Amino acid sequence: MTPSLGFRLFVDAREVGMMSEGYVWIITDGMTDYLRSLTPLKENPSIVDAELNIYGLLAYDAAIALALAIEDVGTVNFGLRKANVSGNHSTYLATLGISPNGPKIPQALSNTSFKGLTGDYLFVNRQLPTSAFQIVNVIGDGERELGFWTPEMDLSKN
């Protein structure tokens, strides 16, 4: 749902009384980010809001997983070899070189598992299962984060 359509939906919902106590709305992260952008200016607008949404937390877990996979592969043979690029396909990126450990990283990554910020981080059939949802309460023109829901921990404030 586009933000403009979502905004119209909530305007209509307010008109028919569906934004009062007793109603629950389940919306996408994109819509939550849009609602955040509508909040009034803070007392100290120069302070950066460093809160991460669920995608920021997933990105943090992905960076940790990649670091663990690289450690698993090892850094003994970490040199770069020149890429075989010819003709018009030459780009600046091709001049950077290729790591001989590169092909080993996907397998090491698929074997990586740890307790991340979004719950248990592990691959099932080479894919990450959806494991966390951010729960927010929209109040007036703002929102209040209630926490996160995961299958392992149910609702958690962390």
Score class of each variant (00 low, 15 high):
Pro100Met: 06
Asn111Met: 10
Gly102Leu: 11
Thr118Ile: 01
Val124Met: 03
Thr112Val: 15
Ser110Leu: 07
Leu109Pro: 02
Ser90Arg: 15
Ser113Val: 08
Leu96Thr: 09
Pro106Glu: 01
Ile98Val: 14
Asn125Glu: 07
Ala94Gln: 11
Gly102Glu: 12
Ser110His: 12
Thr95Glu: 13
Thr112His: 04
Thr95Ile: 05
Ala94Gly: 13
Leu122Arg: 06
Ile98His: 04
Asn125Thr: 06
Thr95Tyr: 03
Ser113Arg: 13
Pro100Ile: 08
Ser90Asp: 13
Leu93Ser: 10
Leu122Phe: 11
Lys104Pro: 02
Leu109Thr: 05
Thr118Met: 00
Ala94Asn: 13
Leu122Pro: 02
Gly116Arg: 00
Thr112Pro: 04
Asn111Pro: 05
Phe123Met: 09
Tyr121Gln: 04
Phe123Trp: 05
Asn101Glu: 14
Gln107Met: 10
Pro100Lys: 07
Ala108Met: 02
Ala108Phe: 01
Leu122Ala: 14
Leu96Asn: 08
Lys104Ser: 13
Phe123Leu: 07
Leu109Glu: 04
Ala94Thr: 14
Phe123Gln: 04
Ser110Asp: 08
Ser90Tyr: 10
Leu117Thr: 11
Pro103Phe: 00
Thr95Cys: 05
Gln107Leu: 14
Ser90Trp: 10
Leu96His: 07
Asn125Cys: 03
Gly119Leu: 02
Leu109Val: 08
Phe114Arg: 11
Thr118Trp: 01
Tyr92Phe: 14
Pro100His: 03
Thr91Arg: 11
Phe123Ile: 06
Gln107His: 13
Thr91Val: 10
Phe114Gly: 11
Tyr92Val: 13
Gly119His: 01
Ser99His: 06
Asp120Val: 13
Asn101Met: 14
Leu117Tyr: 08
Thr118Arg: 00
Ser113Tyr: 05
Pro103Ile: 06
Leu122Tyr: 05
Ala94Tyr: 09
Gly97Asp: 07
Ser110Pro: 06
Asn111Ser: 13
Phe123Gly: 00
Pro100Gln: 09
Leu109Ser: 04
Ile105Ala: 01
Pro103Met: 04
Ser99Gln: 08
Val124Ile: 14
Ser110Trp: 05
Gly119Asp: 04
Pro106Gly: 02
Phe114His: 12
Tyr121Leu: 04
Phe114Glu: 12
Pro106Gln: 02
Gly116His: 02
Leu122Gln: 07
Pro106Leu: 01
Gly102Ala: 15
Lys115Ile: 14
Leu93Trp: 09
Ser99Asn: 12
Leu117Ile: 09
Gln107Cys: 10
Leu93Gln: 09
Gly119Pro: 04
Asn125Tyr: 00
Pro100Thr: 10
Thr112Phe: 00
Ala94Lys: 10
Gly102Asp: 12
Val124Thr: 14
Ser113Thr: 13
Gln107Pro: 06
Leu96Gln: 11
Leu96Cys: 09
Ser90Pro: 05
Asp120Tyr: 05
Asn101Lys: 10
Asp120Ala: 13
Thr112Tyr: 00
Asn111Cys: 07
Gly119Cys: 07
Gly119Thr: 04
Gly119Met: 02
Ala94Arg: 09
Gly102Gln: 12
Gln107Glu: 14
Ala108Asn: 02
Phe123Lys: 00
Phe114Thr: 12
Asn125His: 05
Ala108Val: 04
Thr112Trp: 01
